[in-house]
Write a protein that binds this DNA or RNA. Structure first.
Length: 221
DNA sequence: TGCCAGGCCGGGT
DNA sequence: ACCCGGCATGGC
């Protein structure tokens, strides 16, 4: 089923080119800034950091908190995110001497646990870093993923992050490029057709895979 | 013009 | 073990 879903999404949307041509560090910073935030706003914040020549671990590590807040303000939650970036930078500098290459030498499951111990890094952000910055096959589950799978009845509404991730990873070959493209396609699908309100299920590329009675909602389970 | 966006944490039951 | 409010900006 998941392979079929992928085929349909790829046929409908083509490759999404997520996080192309950018440094792993920039991707990592973007993963924090993107928490519950419109990507357009994240781009503004990243642009500010780039203009200030701060998209490099040591440079960003040395920026005072208040200045960091100003730079990332367009991404929203800027005080919270400044603290979270700070935690992540301290982790990177203190454990890996500020080197992403060194960080990614760590065995992936262990690195994932370490990232989850960083204040402000939850499962989605950790997996985004592993997958999009480290090319490691850790599937990124987001709000869209859950919504799409639940509305189709492929997983129950009570499933948490790791239930969903285990299910997806058990159905797919464990390959980073596939996870990368698959997640990006699910986000694209979500934005265009599977929003929280006013979904456009009947025009969706997956409409033929809907349950007979149409998309499921929590009360219908 | 409200609602929403590529979450996560902390405090209250 | 839940449940919920807080965090903040800009786009549609």
């Amino acid at each position: 089923m998941l392979t079929e879903v992928y085929r349909r999404l790829f046929d409908a949307f083509g490759p999404q080119h997520w996080w192309p041509g950018q440094s792993p560090f920039e991707v990592m910073v973007g993963a924090v800034l993107a928490q519950n935030t419109n990507w357009k706003n994240v781009e503004k914040a990243i642009g500010n950091l780039r203009r200030a020549d701060l998209l490099e671990p040591r440079a960003l590590y040395n920026v005072p908190a208040e200045e960091l807040e100003e730079l990332i303000q367009p991404a929203g939650y800027f005080r919270v995110k400044a603290r979270r970036l700070r935690s992540l930078l301290e982790f990177l500098v203190e454990w890996y001497d500020g080197s992403l290459d060194a960080m990614f030498q760590t065995e992936p499951a262990e690195l994932r646990r370490q990232l989850l111990d960083v204040h402000g890094i939850g499962p989605e952000t950790a997996d985004s870093i592993l997958l999009y910055a480290g090319d490691l096959p850790s599937f990124v589950v987001d709000a869209y993923t859950g919504r799409v799978f639940m509305r189709h009845g492929w997983i129950d509404f009570e499933a948490d992050y790791h239930r969903l991730q285990d299910y997806i990873q058990s159905e797919l070959p464990r390959e980073a490029p596939l996870y990368n493209e698959y997640h990006a396609l699910l986000v694209r699908l979500g934005k265009d057709y599977c929003r929280k309100t006013k979904p456009k299920c009947l025009e969706c590329p997956l409409r033929e895979l809907l349950p007979p009675g149409g998309p499921l909602e929590p009360e219908s389970i």
